[in-house]
Design a protein around this nucleic acid. Structure first.
Length: 315
DNA sequence: ACGATTTGACCAGA
DNA sequence: TCTGGTCAAATCGT
């Protein structure tokens, strides 16, 4: 377990070292940036592997019969988050600087290198149509294992809250496709949507297509801000916050004793009225630097310490 | 009462 | 015209 922690800390340190470079992306070498990103990704992934090989955790995983997430999905998740971060940084830079050329090159380079096709190819084995529809640009498809026990009908949990708004039989598919949008669409005009469909040849796998990005956890009024320091944060609350962790592999790795979580609810995670908005998840803390990015790395530490301390004491 | 889901109707793009 | 995507009324669950 010590090894795991030091790996995480190492990863965080690497990321922190990268932070100054992120702020001058236009002048920074893409190649160098990419290799540093890859290093960070490797560290986190091996940390995750350490964790899952830890006896208690692996026993817990077996008890829960949680499907093992493909490592490529973990990498996919990290990469997409990284790309989101850098693209938002680039946007910010383009807004503030008027000379376009270097920035455009930087953006093109990074985007080509990290996002789009290769990320998709990594996450999905299905051949992507070369032809593009209008909104194909922000379409991300990935395959996720369905729960093998409990209600296998429920779409895989991905850390966001979704509201189903439609279901349709798709020509040539055995299973209907479900249409979901972000629960906070009304309140925060969050445009995120997803489609979930079972594979014909493998009903235990969902193909999930995401469209649009969540903005509901980025706006100042958005629900990502943790509730004001309460006298006591109960284990239950921690768990409901855990339910909102985007990376499923971290979700059950960090998620404590794992009791009711595994076969949770219907298709979306629900929160009580008071806990309607979970605390910011790690991905948000790490990557959604938003406008003020300077403290992002500190907040990772705070976040992780906050999450880990009770666990360490518990056992 | 309120919010989520279901499901047939409707609409728009290919 | 066909199909996938969305709407919205009815229904359900808390």
């Amino acid at each position: 377990m010590d090894e795991f922690i030091s790996l995480i800390l190492q990863g965080v340190k690497l990321a922190k070292d990268l932070e100054p470079a992120v702020q001058n992306l236009a002048t920074h070498q893409n190649q160098e940036m990419i290799s540093k990103l890859d290093e960070i990704i490797r560290v986190f992934i091996s940390a995750r592997e350490r964790l899952s090989s830890h006896q208690d955790v692996s026993q817990m995983l077996q008890q829960q019969q949680q499907p093992q997430i493909d490592p490529s999905l973990q990498e996919y998740w990290l990469r997409t988050k990284m790309v989101e971060l850098f693209q938002s940084q680039l946007m910010a830079e383009r807004m503030s600087s008027s000379s376009g050329l270097e920035n455009k090159q930087a953006e093109g380079g990074l985007a080509m290198e990290l996002s789009g096709r290769d990320v998709q190819a990594m996450a999905s084995s299905s051949a992507q149509r070369p032809r593009r529809r209008k909104d194909d640009a922000d379409k991300r498809t990935m395959r996720v294992p369905a729960p093998r026990m409990g209600n296998t009908e429920i779409p895989p949990e991905d850390g966001y809250t979704w509201r189903k708004y439609g279901q349709k039989e798709i020509l040539g598919s055995r299973f209907p496709r479900g249409y979901y949008r972000c629960t906070h669409q009304k309140l925060y005009q969050c445009p995120a949507k997803k489609q979930v469909q079972r594979l014909d040849d493998d009903p235990y796998t969902f193909e999930v297509t995401y469209r649009g990005d969540h903005i509901c956890h980025m706006s100042a009024t958005a629900p990502s801000v943790p509730p004001p320091q309460l006298p006591e944060i109960t284990r239950e609350m921690t768990q409901s916050a855990m339910a909102a962790q985007p990376p499923p592999w971290l979700e059950f790795s960090l998620g404590g004793s794992g009791s009711s979580m595994a076969a949770a609810g219907p298709s979306t995670v629900r929160y009580g009225k008071e806990a309607e908005f979970p605390v910011a998840d790690m991905a948000d803390v790490m990557f959604n630097s938003g406008s003020s990015s300077s403290n992002s790395m500190e907040s990772i530490f705070t976040y992780m310490e906050g999450k880990w301390e009770p666990e360490e004491k518990k056992n």
